[in-house]
Design a protein around this nucleic acid. Structure first.
Lengths: 183, 183
DNA sequence: GGTACGGGAGAACGATCGTTCTCTGCGTCG
DNA sequence: CGACGCAGAGAACGATCGTTCTCCCGTACC
């Protein structure tokens, strides 16, 4: 197994475990067992748990935003694209292993204690805000109208996680539709 | 120091520490040092850390909802009361030690690993939803309109925590005002 | 064919945590 | 006055965690 494959298997295993059980609840030995990568190699690729965590957040950030963008791209331009964000949230919330937004979870767990985690979370949320701002701008919405669309999405993520139901995505979409109609 | 005072000092110290640094990052010895209660008494009052955590969440739930209700009660009936929720969020977000919603944070950290924590969080969020539903119903809004108001508030909590700015409360209020106008 | 090298498995180490135990001192009551 | 009991301080214990080290084996090269 070369370094690239070891890195991929480590990220796959660590990301799944961290997301499912929380970061501090998962030991490096469990990452080793789930990935099949020896502990020595693990520390060759990621010199500390912090760096492994940051790599997981980075990769998840890219994949999450790519998946969202891919879903939105398939829709006709205009208001449909803004609403498509909430449709995609619904699909995400119905995935069997959905357990909320990994970045919100990580921030609650480590945001106060690990500045690198806090930075990664801020960057992810900032990128999401910017993406949504572009969609809203493309339907003629003013910059100041973007906030509520972001908040509906963020609120839906935590409400869906805590309630265990994907329904908040529908409610967020309904709220967004009303806001779009009002502008 | 009698048992009642010990319990109060323990809850004060533990709640502040858990909120500021996260639950797993705070050891029982730090709670002892911050509260001035001996370790022996600590375990007499709360037989385990889990029970201390649950007691903190319970007390915080009651105090949080009472503070919100007290603020809303001072407003004239009608739409003003719904908007008052977001005004109170703004006040909360500007408190110097604000670090997001303790329940969302606790859920992200322990929701997957401690069912008692998950239950407490669900109960708190359910009560908030119900409170907001009453306010919306009192202005003639249908039951199905409540969701977006909850999501705006939840989203504002996490966005304010992560961005470190109270501005999301204003954005949530603005979104809520538009939604109220639309119904 | 011998030897040096690299990688895997897992023991080991030091720190920390939740929880319990010991020791010491002090107040109380007969 | 003496014995008992409770409370506080902190050591101790067992478990776990992040990280490193040791040992061993297969392999490639001279």
């Amino acid at each position: 197994m070369d370094l690239a494959e070891a890195e991929a298997r480590l990220l796959d295993a660590a990301e799944a475990l961290f997301y499912e059980r929380g970061i501090q609840a998962v030991g490096m030995d469990q990452v080793r067992a789930a990935s099949g990568v020896s502990l020595k190699r693990l520390y060759q690729v990621f010199p500390s748990k912090s760096e492994l965590v940051r790599a997981c957040l980075d990769r998840r950030d890219h994949r999450w935003r790519a998946r969202l963008a891919a879903h939105v791209e398939g829709r006709p331009e205009g208001a449909e694209r803004v609403l498509a964000v909430y449709d995609w949230l619904y699909e995400w919330f119905t995935e069997p292993d959905f357990r909320g937004c990994a970045f919100i979870n990580a921030y609650g767990e480590l945001g106060a204690v690990d500045p690198a985690v806090a930075d990664a979370v801020r960057a992810h949320k900032g990128a999401f805000h910017e993406y949504l701002a572009d969609l809203v701008a493309s339907v003629g919405g003013p910059e100041r109208a973007v906030g509520p669309f972001v908040l509906l999405a963020e609120g839906a993520m935590t409400a869906a996680a805590i309630s265990g139901s994907p329904e908040p995505a529908r409610q967020a979409r309904s709220g967004a539709r009303q806001l779009l109609a009002a502008t």
